[in-house]
């Protein structure tokens, strides 16, 4: 099969390149173990196996290649940053902004993300960016005076191994960012199997959950909106065509007429979006939600004030 090594050098080399690149892109212990088993079981001469194993071992630990991966991620972010924020400087947030995400996505279609805010100046907006998604900007939240400057929780889709960035803008116009890397088991998020008729029947339903244990005047809350957030990549068999993208584009949440936040969303938000946040009740503390999707449908709900405890 392998006459002389030099004759087949290009083949060996391309295999190695593929293996090393794969390992570095998706490097983890399990993955590496599979590559090694694959090589050991491959019907080639023992000397070539030894060579392959040796080079794979080197490849996995080669800092030069690891840097290449980091370079790719940095280039990607640099491109996104300049597209979204132009020439503005984006400062490293240090410990003033935290992203809490799992190290590995359990379900790529629903990755819970928590942003913890600890900035000395009031934050007016937060953007969430899933760098390697086809549509990286998952959403931008613009905060009103009733938003508690503590945390924000959302659920996003993650299509591949990627950095996730949170970018906060403060009221003095300064941008801060923090990021975390996430691995995705088994590739990108599987399209839902839901029956389109059932999905449309419940579109726009809402729930608003408030914790009754009110800390001071700040109420932790969770807004749930039933919406498929179709990303335009699902096939509709009945029409033998792709289901057009249909996602929540704008969600406005107010308490007693005072803004809590205004969200500009996109297809990287999970199906049936759930948003966690805290707010300071204004007036009688009633809540109004106004949502609009990309096909122009409008959904609104009014939630009465919590009874006094």
């Amino acid at each position: 099969m392998f006459g002389s090594l030099s004759e087949h050098w290009p083949v060996v080399w391309s295999m190695l390149g593929g293996v090393a690149e794969g390992m570095l892109r998706h490097y983890d212990a399990k993955c590496a173990a599979r590559f090694i088993i694959m090589i050991v079981e491959h019907p080639v001469k023992a000397c070539i196996k030894t060579l392959l194993l040796a080079i794979v071992a080197c490849g996995a630990t080669l800092p030069a290649r690891a840097d290449a991966k980091d370079d790719d991620a940095r280039d990607r972010w640099e491109l996104l940053r300049s597209t979204m924020f132009g020439g503005r400087t984006v400062h490293d947030a240090g410990d003033q902004l935290h992203l809490v995400i799992p190290e590995r996505a359990l379900d790529a279609a629903l990755v819970p993300v928590t942003v913890e805010l600890n900035l000395p100046t009031r934050v007016t907006a937060i953007s969430l960016v899933v760098d390697n998604n086809p549509s990286p900007l998952a959403g931008t939240f613009r905060f009103g005076p009733a938003f508690t400057q503590k945390f924000l929780k959302v659920r996003v889709r993650v299509n591949d191994y990627t950095l996730i960035h949170a970018v906060a803008e403060t009221e003095d116009g300064v941008l801060y960012t923090t990021s975390r890397y996430i691995k995705v088991s088994g590739g990108c998020s599987a399209p839902g199997l839901g029956n389109p008729a059932e999905v449309l029947a419940r579109i726009g339903r809402m729930q608003f959950r408030r914790t009754r244990a009110v800390e001071g005047v700040k109420v932790p809350a969770e807004l749930m909106i039933s919406h498929p957030n179709y990303n335009g990549m699902q096939m509709d068999r009945a029409k033998s065509n792709f289901t057009p993208a249909r996602y929540l584009q704008n969600v406005t949440v107010t308490t007693g007429g005072v803004s809590i936040f205004d969200l500009e969303g996109d297809i990287s938000m999970s199906e049936d979006p759930v948003i966690g946040f805290g707010y300071t009740p204004a007036d009688d503390g009633a809540i109004d939600i106004l949502a609009r999707d990309s096909m122009g449908s409008v959904f609104s709900r009014h939630f009465e004030a919590l009874p006094q405890s």
Binding site: G186, G187, A190, P191, G192, L193, N195, M235, D236, R237
Partner: peptide, 20 residues
């Protein structure tokens, strides 16, 4: 009866994953 629709929804996604 739902299988053709499920194949449409997931087919290319599975194909790519398995080919990888």
């Amino acid at each position: 009866a739902n299988l053709p629709q499920a194949f449409e929804a997931r087919g290319s996604y599975y194909q790519q994953g398995l080919e990888k």
